[in-house]
């Protein structure tokens, strides 16, 4: 049986402690960083489409642009901007992690540690951004 299909997956012999979790996906830092990278990437892409169109309204008239950009300054959109910046910052930091994992063997071996460094830097960046942005949104 193991010899029957060279080049395809057969049950590998591996130490018990390296067994994957109980699902098809392997779980842990590697999978969740990949999942978050995808979700944030798709979200940023669709925002980008909208953002180019709303900015293009400067070519229509000052009134048209100001009307649409005014909707970006409401409390609900202000919270949405925190989510957007959070997605961008994660995608950026995890993208750097991916580049390091690709090009540097130390980083390949320590990709789990790097994931938690990404999370830590994300928290620090968001602590710097969120209060200032929310003060701007809610105090004028």
């Amino acid at each position: 049986m193991p010899e029957s299909s060279a080049g395809t997956l057969t049950a590998p012999e591996k130490p018990a402690k390296q067994k994957p979790g109980g699902t098809l996906y392997r779980g842990r830092e590697g999978m969740w960083s990949w999942v978050l990278h995808r979700i944030t990437g798709v979200a940023i892409f669709f925002f980008l489409l909208v953002h180019i169109l709303d900015t293009a309204l400067v070519r229509v008239s000052p009134e048209a642009y100001n009307a649409v950009i005014g909707t970006y300054q409401t409390p609900i959109m202000g919270l949405g901007e925190v989510a957007l910046v959070g997605a961008i910052v994660f995608h950026a930091l995890n993208g750097l992690r991916i580049i390091l994992v690709d090009f540097w063997t130390w980083a390949t071996r320590h990709q789990k540690v790097l994931f938690w460094i990404v999370i830590a830097l994300w928290v620090v960046t968001m602590l710097a951004f969120t209060p200032r942005h929310l003060i701007n949104v809610f105090s004028h």
Partner: peptide, 26 residues
């Protein structure tokens, strides 16, 4: 990706952090 980190982080800092942030955009 690396270039965009510089471009977008600066874009966000100038437009959302400096001055009155998003409220100043018109």
């Amino acid at each position: 990706g690396v270039v965009l980190i510089v471009l977008i982080f600066t874009h966000l800092f100038v437009n959302l952090m400096l001055g009155d942030g998003v409220k100043a955009i018109d």
